[in-house]
Design a protein around this nucleic acid. Structure first.
Length: 312
DNA sequence: AGCACA
């Protein structure tokens, strides 16, 4: 990767938007230093690659679909699809290399309703996106800020960003992109709980009626009392090094409302995500199995949390 | 793994 020193997750998301100048203010006093005009001579690293290369798109993907996926990302300028045989190759240009890196990271995001899945572009074909930095920048006729849809009616339709004329304008990331619904099947999108999620208290360790079958051998106090907004998926942490999927499955699959689970191993650390039918089912298990000690447990029992809104 | 448009 070219952007040495740029950490992909260093991005602010949503990015800190430069405050728009107050209506009556003298422009020169409030306008920040001009943004790097992409590709302009004299601009830092005009040759820097700020294009990402996207594979894993379904063969029948439309330019508009890709555009609608990407248009929310900070700095998005243009995208296009070229076919190598019948393999679609997506390219997307961003205002800066940093934003391209951030977009790459954003496209690797797993959402909290299906954290075990790669970002799936098309649920039908289960095509999982793969994104890398491109080798060369996307060529955009007439630079940025042009209405690409109007100027380019050629067979090679290029889809430009909606706010490229104002690189500092924040993308409409609040509320989150509706594209989320593309990332999972409809069943993952559950209505938000009606109460203030951050006011939700993590219940104390419960000693009562845990799971039916191979229940935990004991309960241990759980350290981390902070939690994320409730949803129908649980995150299980503080698992022992020797834990295996079957052990977890035997415990969780018998819990009411269980739908599916995914065990992720990262080095010594094993974590698990469990999806339930609804928030209530997840909440019940959150309560009853919090701190549960199972045979493989190491130090303390399992820590049950709701997943982060975005789990990388 | 596969990187094109001009």
């Amino acid at each position: 990767m070219a952007g040495a020193g740029i950490h992909p997750f260093h991005q602010q998301w949503p990015p800190a938007a430069a405050a728009p100048p107050p209506p009556g203010a003298p422009a020169s006093a409030v306008i920040p230093p001009p943004p790097p005009v992409p590709g302009a001579p004299g601009t830092a690293a005009a040759d820097e690659v700020r294009t990402i290369f996207i594979t894993g798109l379904p063969v029948d993907v439309k330019e508009r679909e890709l555009h609608n996926l990407l248009r929310w990302l900070p700095g998005f300028e243009a995208s296009q699809i070229n076919f190598k045989g019948d393999q679609p190759m997506g390219f997307a240009l961003f205002a800066t290399a940093h934003q391209a890196v951030a977009a790459k990271a954003a496209l690797q995001v797993r959402d909290r309703f299906s954290p075990w899945r790669d970002l799936v572009f098309d649920a039908e074909t289960k095509s999982a996106l793969h994104t890398e930095m491109a080798k060369k920048n996307l060529f955009v006729k007439r630079g940025v800020g042009t209405d690409a849809n109007a100027v380019d009616q050629s067979k090679r339709l290029r889809t430009g960003g909606d706010y490229t004329h104002s690189p500092y304008a924040p993308p409409p990331f609040h509320p989150p992109p509706p594209a989320v619904s593309m990332w999972g099947t409809a069943g993952y999108i559950t209505a938000p709980p009606p109460y203030n999620p951050y006011a939700y208290p993590v219940p104390p360790v419960a000693m009562t009626s845990p799971s039916p079958v191979p229940g935990p051998t004991a309960y241990a106090p759980v350290q981390n009392t902070k939690d994320n907004p409730p949803c129908n998926t649980l995150f299980i942490g503080n698992l022992g090094e020797t834990v295996v999927e079957e052990e977890l499955r035997s415990l969780f699959s018998v819990q009411p409302g269980f739908k599916q689970m995914k065990v992720l191993r990262q080095d010594r650390n094993t974590v698990c995500f469990i999806e339930f039918e609804d928030v209530n089912a997840a909440t019940a298990v959150h309560r009853t199995l919090q701190g549960a000690v199972i045979p493989s447990s190491g130090r303390g029992g399992m820590r049950i949390q709701y997943p982060l809104p975005f789990h990388f």
